[in-house]
Design a binder for these strands. Structure first.
Lengths: 160, 160
DNA sequence: AATTTAGTTCTATTACTCTTGAACTAAACG
DNA sequence: CGTTTAGTTCAAGAGTAATAGAACTAAATT
């Protein structure tokens, strides 16, 4: 049962943050980290201080501290400050995040290297059909990886 | 401490299966599932029955049963049988596996859809720079996703 | 018909990750 | 100099996923 039946202005935002949070969980984030992402993506202004985040998400200080530091280590978020205000305002750093997404994209097909080792170990096998199947997988991943590399280069040259 | 100081013929294989297993764990598999993959990739012949797998990995029957069924549901492995022999011989099905890898490759940049929703919610924001940063991420993912789609099509037309 | 084989299923245990509460710190403030 | 602020750290609790053990089943074998 949600906390309030009288839909407050934030009720909709809360629901959206939860929904986005679930989506980020599916991409591998822990529940709280995912919700911090959701909140910082949807919040207006798109930067919020420690206690705003904690209050909005209804989580503990330690959880928020760990989540913010984890996301900062990953380079997805950073913070800004304002003179005369000790608080840090955390925000998603879209440049670093894009940088990270590029790297991850380039890692597509990283299994290729593993399978190449397997193929080497299997050169003397009595069952070459299996090796041929693996070879095709390696070739697919090579094909895609090369294409992605090219595309990421192209993207980086765009609008220079 | 490893089980034997006298390196048996399988000692090297055991180490390789563990090493491959760790690599598959990093790709998201559970420890035992990852090791089943490692074993079936390196085993000669490349198909093994339930008890061979259990004995080689030193795991319980229930763990092996769950692992094999899970990998079968994913379509990564299947089994073959031989007349007059009740056992099923499990093996990696390279065709299905490649099929699965293709699908996964096409899912690269699935976050795009999420961010498009966020952008829509932010159209009236006082902080358009943030929206522009998100927009660039969306565009990157669109660019890559389209390229990958094209490449997968190309791959499928190869050698027809 | 009784037994063996080739697994499966269910419950319990273990291991690990996530989250919290409470105590703590370092800088700033009054 | 004592207090508030803005967090951090650490030990512990809760929750979840992985594995194991033991009982079970269905088909085949004797």
């Amino acid at each position: 049962m949600p906390k309030q039946d009288q839909p407050a202005p934030e009720a909709h935002l809360e629901a959206k943050v939860e929904q986005l949070g679930i989506a980020f969980e599916k991409l591998g984030m822990s529940p709280i980290n995912a919700r911090v992402m959701g909140f910082l993506l949807l919040a207006e202004p798109p930067y919020k201080d420690f206690y705003e985040i904690r209050d909005f998400l209804g989580a503990s200080k330690s959880s928020i501290s760990l989540a913010l530091n984890h996301l900062m280590n990953q380079g997805i978020i950073d913070y800004l400050t304002f003179r005369g205000d000790r608080r840090r305002y955390f925000r998603i750093n879209t440049d670093n995040w894009l940088q990270k997404l590029k790297q991850q994209t380039l890692e597509t097909g990283s299994m290729r290297l593993l399978l190449e080792e397997v193929l080497e170990a299997r050169t003397a096998s009595e069952y070459p059909e299996f090796g041929e199947g693996l070879q095709e997988i390696v070739e697919f991943q090579e094909f895609i990886a090369q294409g992605i590399e090219l595309m990421v280069r192209k993207w980086e040259e765009r609008g220079v």
